[in-house]
Amino acid sequence: MVLFHKVNRLSQILFYMIGVFLLGLGITLCTKTSLGVSPVVSLAYNASVIFNIPIGITSFANFVLCIFIQFLLLGKSFDQFRIFQVVASFLTSFVMQFFDNTLIMPESMGMRFVWLLAGVVITGCGASLSVAMRFIPNPADALAHTIGQVTGKGFGTGKNLMDLVYISLSLFLSFGTGQGWLGVGIGTLIASVVTGRVIAISFPTFEKLYEKQVAKT
């Protein structure tokens, strides 16, 4: 009950919402560059294009899948509170759909790479902030964190491992339907490598921010 009280404090919820906002923005920035989408959304993006379904819907389905995989990995250790990640799934999918409808892809190749790098950094920071607040993490980031715990390699490496799996599944879907390298490009590779490193650097800082917020109670 003490933990439940802590994670519901206004400051933690505020930082959590900022993290969700940054995450949705960062993922969409990467997607809009047409250099290859962020690994975490690659499967949802390919399904959206191939089956002509709004990316907000396919992203939500993807996040629900992440929750199920967490259940498989954790078994009896799966905390029922993780079910509330469905709420985070909806919020993140909503933010992604909003920016997908409002952002216009830059025309110059230089600006596309600027957007890509900005998107990667923002995605990593958003993921770290939302998970560090220990409220309701985005399911994809919670899965990466779970993989890091199960393997003993940490959140950042867990993110890298999960990205590799998502890229593989995305390519399997796209090549299996005759779409080739749909959604996967140099931007996907950069995001796969750099996002995990951004998380590895920023997550400890945001964990300290969480501890400071707890200390104020």
Rank of each mutant, 00 (worst) to 15 (best):
M1Y: 10
V2I: 09
H5V: 02
H5P: 03
K6H: 15
V7Y: 14
V7C: 11
V7S: 00
S11D: 04
L14D: 09
L14M: 08
F15T: 05
Y16Q: 03
I18F: 02
V20Y: 14
L22H: 01
L22K: 08
G24I: 12
L25M: 06
L25V: 00
L25K: 04
I27G: 07
I27E: 10
T28L: 02
C30I: 12
T31D: 10
T31E: 11
T31Q: 04
T31P: 04
S34N: 04
L35E: 01
G36H: 04
S38P: 00
P39G: 13
P39E: 06
V40E: 11
S42D: 02
L43N: 00
L43H: 00
A44H: 03
N46F: 04
A47L: 07
S48T: 12
S48Q: 13
V49L: 12
F51L: 09
N52Y: 05
I53N: 07
I53E: 02
P54N: 00
P54T: 00
S59D: 06
N62G: 07
N62Y: 01
N62H: 09
V64Q: 08
V64L: 02
L65C: 02
I67A: 08
F68M: 14
I69A: 06
Q70R: 04
F71Y: 14
L72G: 02
L73W: 01
L74F: 01
L74V: 08
L74G: 06
S77Y: 05
D79Q: 15
Q80T: 12
F81A: 13
F84V: 00
Q85P: 11
Q85H: 00
L91S: 12
T92S: 13
T92L: 15
F94S: 15
P106W: 04
P106M: 09
E107M: 07
S108F: 11
G110P: 01
G110T: 13
M111L: 13
M111H: 00
M111F: 11
F113V: 00
F113W: 14
W115D: 07
W115G: 09
L116S: 08
L116Y: 05
V120C: 04
V120K: 03
V121T: 10
C125S: 06
C125R: 07
G126P: 10
A127Y: 09
S130H: 08
A132Y: 05
M133C: 11
R134T: 06
N138P: 11
P139I: 09
P139Q: 01
A140H: 05
L143M: 13
A144H: 08
G148L: 14
G148V: 03
K153G: 05
K153A: 10
F155V: 12
G156A: 12
T157G: 08
K159P: 01
N160F: 15
L164A: 14
L164V: 13
Y166R: 06
I167F: 09
S170D: 14
F175R: 04
T177A: 12
G178L: 03
G178H: 10
G178M: 03
G185A: 10
G185Q: 02
I186E: 06
I190H: 12
A191F: 13
S192N: 00
T195I: 08
R197Y: 14
I199D: 07
A200F: 04
A200H: 13
I201V: 15
S202K: 09
F206L: 04
E207I: 00
L209K: 12
Y210E: 08
K212Q: 03
Q213I: 13
A215T: 04
K216I: 15
K216M: 14
